[in-house]
Amino acid sequence: MPTANPRWKLALDVERCIGCHACSVACKVENNVPLARFRTKVYYWEHGKFPDVKRNFLPTLCMQCEDAPCLKACPNDAIERFSDGIVRIDPDRCDHAAKCESACPYAAIGCDDNDIADKCDFCSHRLDAGMEPACVETCPAEVFHFGDANDPQSPYSLFMKKHGKETAVLKPEENTKPSVSYRGHAKEMEKKIPKGKLHDPFSYEIETWTSLESQFPKPKRVIWAKVVDAKPSTPTGGKS
């Protein structure tokens, strides 16, 4: 049970992650996140030379920073950090300045000309109903350890008690004091998370798995040859 004054925190045990995208899809359905927009996203990184090839995954979401750059950047005070540790957007105050998106080092907040600012709030509406965030609940690999940091029996506190020393925040050089920490992630993968821009949907494409780029504007994209006619030919009698 959360305490009367909960402090919501999350630790991800990424070594367990299987890259299944369940967290992302759960989030999209739960929060009706449009296509090409994100509150959570899982990155892939394939590396090594055959046959010593490894794949790493990195689920990302809003870090609920204690020193949140988005909050400081917003000219309308539409972003607020609550006493429970969650950084939330007031949709009525957002007038679409998009400064928040430019300020975020974690690609976690999006604000474009077709939308108001939007980001993960640990599924606050689910917390209100006594439920876990959608990503936490569904994770088949038990990567997400979420809970009230003030409750020593919360999954978060229990995990941190056991593994806290092995955890780190992403991009510590940004000094934003994230409430989300990671255990066992590949440090290189932090480069894949855009700074000052929401996640690029093109980072889903398979050709980006081996890259540590964060953005895929057209010049950086693979030019795929066009298949003029994919229709299979009719069987012929030619010998191999």
Binding site: E46, K49, F50, I206, A225, S233, P235, G238, S240
Partner: peptide, 22 residues
């Protein structure tokens, strides 16, 4: 019947990776 004969052809682009048998 037709062991070793051509079944069909298709055009498809490739993704080059270390993660597959040569």
């Amino acid at each position: 019947p037709g062991a070793g004969e051509v079944l069909g052809t298709a055009l498809i682009p490739v993704w080059v990776t270390e993660g597959i048998h040569p």
